[in-house]
Amino acid sequence: MKRIVCLVFCLGIVGLLSGCASVRSHGYVDARVSAVNYSEDYVPDFSVLTASGDPTGMGGVQVQEFSKGGLSKNECCAPIPGAGQTMIIEWRVGGRHEAEANWKTFRKAVVVRGETSSDPKAVNRLVVRFFPEHEVEAELMWSLIGLGGRPSSRLDQLIYGRRVMRQMGD
């Protein structure tokens, strides 16, 4: 009898988890996340949330000001809303030597621009861009890896160390 109860319980858990996964995976894509900052605000951290505000597990830390390089590190990898879908970007702005209690939090819904690839030699990347006046956008792009690989032509020049300003929507 204990085995039957255990089996029913385990099957129920598997069914629940697979149901959640199928809802979550519809229109989602596995991607790396990085940020580029075209403002002079220091962004200690940011998060990528679903349209309903649920965490995706992706985000980043220490997004430098434009004058200091404007970059964050890459974070890898998690399912996030795909191109044409809405996601919420939540980020904090604060001074490096300022008390965390004084940092301000911003949260905006954005429609994800761009495209992804299902090619096994491609890497999908979400670039979150911060702009002056607390504006933000998100774009998906892909790059081929390995021999003959090439980066996306949409990738920001800051990533290559070139201080080229970009405007929202470019």
Rank of each mutant, 00 (worst) to 15 (best):
M1E: 08
M1L: 08
I4L: 04
C6Q: 01
F9T: 00
C10G: 13
L11P: 06
L11K: 09
V14L: 05
G15W: 12
L16G: 13
G19S: 05
G19Q: 03
C20R: 15
A21L: 10
S22I: 03
S22W: 02
S22A: 04
V23F: 10
R24M: 06
G27Q: 06
Y28C: 08
Y28H: 12
V29Y: 09
V29I: 13
D30G: 09
V33Q: 01
S34N: 04
V36Q: 00
V36C: 00
Y38G: 01
D41Q: 00
V43Y: 02
P44G: 03
P44H: 03
D45Q: 05
F46G: 03
F46E: 01
S47E: 06
S47R: 06
V48F: 13
V48K: 11
L49D: 02
L49S: 03
T50F: 11
T50H: 10
A51D: 07
A51Y: 06
S52W: 07
S52I: 04
P55A: 01
T56G: 01
G59L: 04
G60F: 07
G60C: 09
Q62L: 14
Q64Y: 11
E65M: 13
F66H: 01
F66E: 01
G69M: 06
G69L: 04
G70N: 07
L71Q: 10
K73Y: 12
K73P: 05
E75D: 09
E75G: 08
C76K: 14
P79N: 14
P81D: 00
M87H: 12
M87A: 13
E90V: 00
E90W: 00
W91I: 00
W91P: 00
R92P: 00
G94I: 07
G95A: 03
G95C: 02
R96Q: 11
H97A: 15
E98R: 10
E98W: 05
A99K: 10
A101H: 13
N102V: 09
T105K: 04
F106P: 08
K108Q: 14
A109T: 09
V110W: 06
V110S: 06
R113M: 05
E115A: 08
T116F: 09
T116L: 09
T116D: 10
S117D: 09
P120E: 02
A122R: 01
N124A: 03
V127N: 10
V127L: 13
V128N: 07
H134Q: 11
E135F: 14
E135C: 15
E137M: 02
E137D: 05
A138V: 14
E139K: 15
L140N: 04
W142I: 03
W142H: 02
S143I: 06
S143L: 07
S143Q: 08
L144I: 00
L144W: 01
L147G: 11
R150K: 02
P151F: 10
S153T: 12
R154K: 02
D156K: 14
D156C: 15
D156R: 15
Q157D: 14
L158S: 06
R162D: 05
R163Q: 14
R163H: 15
V164H: 15
R166L: 05
R166V: 06
R166G: 03
M168L: 11
M168C: 09
M168G: 10
M168D: 13
D170Y: 14
D170C: 13
